[in-house]
Write a protein that binds this DNA or RNA. Structure first.
Lengths: 313, 313
DNA sequence: TATACCGTGTATTATTCTTTCATGATTGAT
DNA sequence: ATCAATCATGAAAGAATAATACACGGTATA
């Protein structure tokens, strides 16, 4: 589904080229050929009477004029989002499609109830769920392939000031330590992350959101983890823990299978280690009735899943 | 020259239908056939998932959703104007075309120097001047056939709150009374408009800006003029005055031929009778470098033409 | 009651956009 | 140094879209 009401699609093309850095990548994201993208930009440049691209090596580079255009395009798109939100809110029986995406845990525990609630509330709506890592979530939003994204901040995500997106803290998901049974940390009444500084750690593959999560949490606790193994799935990590290969950090929302001989240890600290889950839309899309509905559902779902949900700032 | 960068032309179509009230009139303004306009709106409605038009008699009426769309469209267009202004300001040698329009006196005395100055400053620019009555000035702006309009407020002009336009006072043009030579008012040292309440008046055709001007000035002075004759041109009116058919009110900027045996009497009063000349652009277009340049020139021109220019509020 | 006006639908024509394929240029690897 | 891979762009063909001509049904005005 191509996204773009009211606005010249050529602006979206320019935005994609800026986002992905090359004409070819932008073309792939838009399901176009590079030639089409090149032509669109040429025409847009002619209409505006300015140069938008300049050759740079075998790729291209945006001109200052292009960045000016993009800055205004962000405002335009935000306004279109607001318009669509207002229209949707005024329609008796909203139709169309609505897509939420989120990283693994969110997609597992938070999104299905929200999607179900949307389906009940809007019978004519086609609701979709996409599991996607944070960095891909932004791509989906930008392309219009998703309307709401649940994600965590990683080093690759755009800054909160990015005028294309509206990123807001939704909830803080506390982090638990998973250690083998009879581990010395399991016996203590109060454990902080720093207490595990000297353990062997099992973390996600470099570049993954999970990798980033553990690293930043440990850094906040004042140490760099001693990484022994890499595992992206909670189950894999848990199995490794059970076999005494190290310890892992898991968010409270992530449920582990019971069969493993491991202990889940709650962490203390000020603030308690947690991953912040952000609810992100395209800028202007926050007022969209379905976004609001989905966020409501997610918040209540999280409240039942997390005994004492920690309200985000 | 079709105007519309970055924005779906269908929004302009909707705007025109709203402005002119009928599909046919909007089509004429856009140089389209009514059928094309009808199709565009149908498609826009489908894209947005809302109804935009409803039959009303043999014409149409906009739905609430259409008005919502238009409200947002106004914001979009203003943002596009700002974008274009910023781009123009960043280009070394701006090209393209720029059109100023104004009512008769403005087109005669104010616009030509401004256009000449623009031509000198922007050699690659195609500068055009259009003489147009106020109500048509708004049409020209809306259609993109003009970028700056000098006009006076009449009963038919949109309110200053109209989010499609940026209307600002440019200067106040004092109103003089033209009476036959040896007329008793010509001998007095201080004449107010109210002193002429019982005279016979020559005014513009009903509906013209001049008609509106005289009526509102007299109303402000506390009387309704006794209209004896109608004349749209200053010369015609002056000739009638010379032959003792009545008196006329002329703006200071309007120069009269010398041959007529008439006297031009300056009016006193608090405030002194004047017509307020507005400089109007599309909303967001005020920052356009050529608009700014033109307004600068017009202001200095007016300062030389009007001995003591009265700065607008 | 007749006529002119308005909006819309259908089919055809015109225009615009998109792709295919080929080319020149640059980077990185062997 | 050379070869292969990657990237952007151009010309021509094809597909998709938009605009028109024309006809029709409904509504106000004479």
């Amino acid at each position: 589904m191509y996204y773009s009401f009211m606005i010249d699609p050529k602006l979206r093309v320019l935005q994609m080229v800026a986002h992905y850095g090359t004409v070819t990548a932008a073309a792939a994201a838009l399901h176009y050929t590079p030639s089409a993208v090149s032509h669109q930009l040429r025409q847009l440049a002619a209409e505006l009477g300015v140069d938008l691209l300049s050759q740079y090596g075998r790729g291209i580079r945006l001109t200052a004029a292009a960045r000016t255009v993009l800055r205004h395009a962000d405002v335009l798109y935000a306004q279109v989002e607001r318009a669509e939100a207002e229209l949707m809110a005024s329609v008796d029986e909203p139709a169309g499609s609505f897509t939420v995406c989120g990283f693994s845990t969110a997609a597992t525990h938070l999104l299905p109830p929200a999607a179900a609630s949307l389906r009940d509330r809007y019978p004519h709506l086609s609701v979709r769920v996409i599991e996607a890592e944070p960095s891909r979530g932004f791509d989906l939003l930008l392309a219009g392939d998703a309307d709401l994204a649940l994600l965590t901040a990683t080093g690759q995500t755009p800054p909160s000031s990015d005028q294309r997106f509206d990123q807001r803290p939704l909830l803080d998901d506390p982090l638990d330590l998973v250690v083998p049974e009879q581990h010395h940390l399991a016996a203590r009444s109060r454990v902080t992350l720093a207490d595990a500084a000297d353990e062997s750690w099992i973390v996600g593959r470099p570049g993954s959101a999970y990798h980033h999560l553990v690293l930043t949490a440990c850094q906040a606790a004042g140490f760099t983890p001693n990484i022994a193994h890499y595992a992206d799935e909670w189950d894999t990590g848990t199995a490794l823990v059970a076999h005494h290969f190290g310890i892992i950090l898991v968010p409270r929302l992530a449920r582990l299978h019971e069969e493993w001989p491991v202990e889940r240890v709650r962490l203390s600290g000020e603030p308690a280690p947690a991953r912040r889950i952000l609810a992100t839309t395209r800028l202007g899309g926050r007022e969209h009735p379905m976004v609001a509905h989905a966020l409501d559902t997610i918040t209540t779902t999280a409240a039942t899943l997390l005994p004492q949900p920690q309200p985000a700032e």
